[in-house]
């Protein structure tokens, strides 16, 4: 069994060059024409972006629709989307546009945000680097996870889902590759509803569940 090499990443946000959106129709137009990197940033990379509160939803689109357009119905519909389950951002774009179109057809008006609360379309650059550390045996996974940064957890547990065709995280992929049986650990990893965790909370949860699954007190 190969060692698990621990990678880390650092994200740098940048403007996309798109004009801002002040209402739902403008949001729809920009989402229809923006690059997939913009979709990825606003749906998948939000745990990596600094925040001063715990928003209700984990994607920027749903948060903005709720807070600034005041449309709770559409926010709920878009807020429940699991962006990591989409291998292709184009599928996520199509679904989001469908939901917005459906809502526009239900409403007698176009919801607008007050000036100063526009939606800014962003994207990012991510640098990935080898930490030089590796995990030799799955029994060390839980304790090693506790020493990882939040961005390393993001890279291996969330972002990984889009790298594996089976839509699984790096830890599970490594455990499944083992000649030994680590079914309980893999099940534990699959059982996590990561939506409501910050990255540091997620790190602690992963370590806790893996410890319990492996029978380590």
């Amino acid at each position: 069994m190969k060692n698990f090499r621990i990678y880390d990443c650092a994200l740098l946000a940048r403007t996309s060059g798109l004009p801002t959106a002040l209402n739902l129709r403008e949001l729809r137009e920009r989402l229809a024409s923006c690059s997939s990197n913009v979709i990825y940033h606003h749906f998948c990379e939000t745990p990596m972006v600094a925040s001063f509160d715990n928003p209700d939803y984990r994607n920027d689109v749903a948060v903005w629709i709720k807070l600034h357009l005041g449309d709770r119905v559409l926010a709920e519909r878009i807020g429940i989307i699991d962006p990591y389950s989409f291998f292709d951002m184009e599928e996520l774009r199509v679904l989001t546009l469908d939901l917005i179109d459906e809502r526009l057809s239900e409403l007698p008006f176009v919801p607008s945000a007050p000036p100063g609360s526009e939606f800014y379309f962003m994207e990012s650059t991510t640098v990935v680097f080898d930490t030089g550390r590796a995990i030799e045996h799955p029994r060390d996974l839980a304790s090693s996870i506790l020493t990882m940064t939040g961005s390393s957890i993001y890279f291996h547990f969330l972002e990984a889902r889009r790298r594996h065709p089976e839509n699984i995280d790096d830890f599970s992929a490594w455990l499944l590759d083992s000649p030994e049986e680590f079914k309980m650990e893999v099940n534990a990893l699959h059982s996590i509803d990561f939506t409501f965790f910050t990255l540091s909370e997620l790190r602690n949860e992963l370590a806790k569940l893996l410890s319990h699954a492996g029978g380590i007190p």
């Binding site: 990443c9 650092a10 740098l12 650059t125 991510t126 640098v127 990935v128």
Partner: peptide, 24 residues
């Protein structure tokens, strides 16, 4: 956190190719 972002920017400025993600 700010240091991390500046280091990331230096990598991007010196060897980035405009790709969303790159390895260093």
């Amino acid at each position: 956190r700010q240091l991390r972002e500046y280091l990331t920017l230096f990598h991007e400025a010196l060897q980035g190719s405009g790709e969303r993600r790159f390895y260093v």
